[in-house]
Design a protein around this nucleic acid. Structure first.
Lengths: 248, 248
DNA sequence: TGCTTTTATTGATTAGGATCAATTTAAAAT
DNA sequence: ATTTTAAATTGATCCTAATCAATAAAAGCA
């Protein structure tokens, strides 16, 4: 008879984020093998680091709850934020290149994570082709997304950036099956500014405008999308006709 | 007795770019196995594509001679350039995520490349741990470098960007053992602008200033670095004392 | 070689968002 | 709860690089 611990053990196999997280595309037997090396870590508090620039690279991290920012302090002492990671996302690949982390990752609120020791993950991936593909995929995605971030910085105005950010977050909540037109977003406006290449003043002004225009509001960590179409239009996202039709 | 073809066969094992290119860190026997799947392609002419957005992902490409730009046309029809690849560099990893290329890559002048069919590379990597690590490393590097590009766009002024670009190119020539204070750079000023998030006019003005200040010049595809220290200072690169000492 | 097209240069003007400054509001901390 | 500190807001001003415009210089091509 299985003891209580086993019976109630929370593993990848019964985690609600399976469809978003690392196991996407793995069959049950593979997930079980992955599960054996996954290490569920004690919760982190706001401000604590998963890792910092220069730390030895040991694990990838999957987020179970909370938000993480990936950032760096440039040699001129300014912070740059490279991305925000939500439940189901995996981070840490910046350490693969030199076995040392090139960026820092910290919790923006209470955080619950799983650790995936990379050496073990790597060994296992030699026997589980799907897992191997999954690792490659996550790493490729990382670079591709960074380049979309570049597009934003290069070609979009301040309002477009803000609109795209809010819309993007909403879509990520949607993918996860959460309410996505009204949600808690535990990110400082200051941090969004550092991600969008703007100042907090500009972010504040744009949010004020979006609110008075009835498009969206973001006050006290609560986002409300009031006019999704207008938000998308502002973000410069083209809704194709078929998708529109389905909606109607 | 080896036939002439074999005797004169140019492979990874006798390629001058070994120390820069994919085989870095592989032992001779591994390089020989890699060599068996590498496909030397006929030369491409200026403007031809290695691949385009939406193409099926089949291979990585290693550059033997020439320069490649990785770019995209945004939905608003504007070009964004994500990077320039020099001899010894490997590109194509943008296709791993969805088995489809997310960006386009084209030759900026006559180009000579090696193709690394990814499926074969992947199979081989299961037997050659060093090769497996090498693939991971190249992919991680790709994301990390994109984030350094982000830093540039977020926090550097137009002159700093330009200085950093020229200095960076010089360093890449240096790593390859080429002359690095005077070299041919077959990149349009227009394309540099699209990489640095500037306009051609601004690039032109900055180059004029750098020339009259005796720092560097770039005319008719020829770069001349006249005052390396000043260039680095402008780029915001801090020379540490020890390195300075060695130089003196 | 001369002709056409693309790229680069130079000048004048404008604008988007940064910066500076002063409150207000909201979190932390005691 | 009260104090302290950090974050957000709002207004006034400034500045960097974009834009507009016109010419010059290269590169591609017949």
């Amino acid at each position: 008879m299985a003891d209580i611990k086993t019976a109630f053990h929370i593993g990848c196999g019964n985690c609600g984020l399976q469809k978003i997280c690392f196991p996407t595309g793995l069959v049950k037997s593979d997930v079980d093998r992955l599960d054996m090396i996954v290490d569920r870590k004690p919760a982190l508090k706001k401000g604590q680091h998963l890792y910092q620039v220069g730390d030895k690279f040991q694990s990838l991290f999957a987020i179970r709850a909370g938000v993480v920012k990936l950032y760096e302090i440039t040699d001129s002492g300014e912070e740059v934020i490279h991305g925000f990671y939500l439940p189901g996302d995996v981070l840490g690949m910046d350490g693969v290149e030199n076995k040392t982390h090139q960026f820092s990752a910290s919790a923006l609120d209470s955080l619950s994570i799983c650790s995936l020791p990379f050496d073990q993950l790597n060994d296992l991936s030699l026997q589980v082709p799907n897992l191997h593909n999954q690792i490659l995929k996550v790493m490729s995605k990382e670079a591709n997304e960074s380049r979309l971030h570049t597009d934003l910085l290069m070609k979009k105005s301040a309002d477009q950036r803000m609109a795209q950010f809010i819309f993007g977050m909403s879509e990520r909540y949607r993918e996860r099956g959460y309410v996505y037109d009204s949600f808690r977003l535990a990110i400082l406006h200051r941090d969004v500014a550092l991600y969008l290449g703007l100042t907090p003043e500009t972010v504040s002004r744009i949010l004020a405008k979006m609110h008075s225009d009835g498009i969206a509001s973001w006050k006290k960590k609560e986002v409300q999308i009031m006019d999704r179409d207008a938000l998308m239009a502002l973000a410069g996202i083209i809704v194709d006709r078929d998708e529109k039709k389905q909606k109607a």
